[in-house]
Design a binder for these strands. Sequence first.
DNA 1: ATGACTATACCGAATGAACGGTACAGAAAA
DNA 2: TTTTCTGTACCGTTCATTCGGTATAGTCAT
Lengths: 180, 180
Amino acid sequence: MPKETYIPCLLGLFRQYGYDGATLSKISEATGLGKASLYHHFPGGKDQMVETVLDYLEKWLSENILPALESEGDAVTRLQRMCLRLNELYQGGEQPCIFAILLSGSARDVFHAKVKALFQGWIDAIANVLIESGMDAQLAKQRGEDVAIAIQGSLILSQALDDTTPFRRTSEQLPTIICR
Amino acid sequence: MPKETYIPCLLGLFRQYGYDGATLSKISEATGLGKASLYHHFPGGKDQMVETVLDYLEKWLSENILPALESEGDAVTRLQRMCLRLNELYQGGEQPCIFAILLSGSARDVFHAKVKALFQGWIDAIANVLIESGMDAQLAKQRGEDVAIAIQGSLILSQALDDTTPFRRTSEQLPTIICR
DNA sequence: ATGACTATACCGAATGAACGGTACAGAAAA
DNA sequence: TTTTCTGTACCGTTCATTCGGTATAGTCAT
């Protein structure tokens, strides 16, 4: 089996346990692969596993989130399409954001640059939608950040309360609120 | 020295490294205490250290955040006073939220109940301010959640971008936005 | 005031378990 | 038969935790 097969499994593990908590034993058990097999597919060890997951997600974002933002229609509609995709990514608010997870612990040193770039790309893409619809560029950038803030915050709160309502409500109301 | 002395140090460590990343070696080095001494003050080990920090923070919240929300003035003013306190707690957005940190990794099983209760208490206190100022109860609860979402989200984004601007802007604009 | 006792604070060294990672020989697939 | 994969056994390191013990200071009864 190619290593891509195990990406969803790895993603789930790093989401649930974080970088430091996702031990090789857990990874081995969850994937059904022995340590030797894991190191055959990922010679770079745990770091490379995360790297692979991040590359996969970067591709997923560029094939799902960006097209939604660059699709036809007004700004509200486009943001709604984005939220539909985010709903898949976070499984309706049940799953935490792996990018946020990777910001703490020993993972931060290694992956911060990549995570930062991903956030900036996302925010810029949102801002462009708003600029296209006639919003002032500086305000559009702020509103782009506000989207990221609302999504990330609602995921945290959904995790904290063990209830997906905050995320689902936020992703529903967000598009209209952002566009004024 | 009494164990309370080490609370700020422990708080900093768990914030920076998370529960799984904050090893006894790091704690020993940062506190200047030998591992055996740590177990003298905290016989329950790492769990008890986190518990002690959480108890300290619960007290801090009840002496700083709640009084700010129950102080004199209109809703906007009271929320502004709360944000001033949050600014201290998170050091202007430089420090992540330990409650959010404790939601992932092996810490989640142990501390989720306490974190959930803290969030709910905070949100309820905010909602009460808004209800007092004439807002519908159900909407007030949503707005209380929106405050938590905005604060948590802006902290995540500040960490991701390595720039405190999102947190500082959010905590400044939040009070007026929430009250409509 | 003195010696016996106790509580608190601390530490170096060691424990077994688990960590991330590797070596290698054999199985499976091409 | 060569390449790809995997199971087993291992490596050194680090993990959380504990052991046995010291230093200090205060509390006693004498």
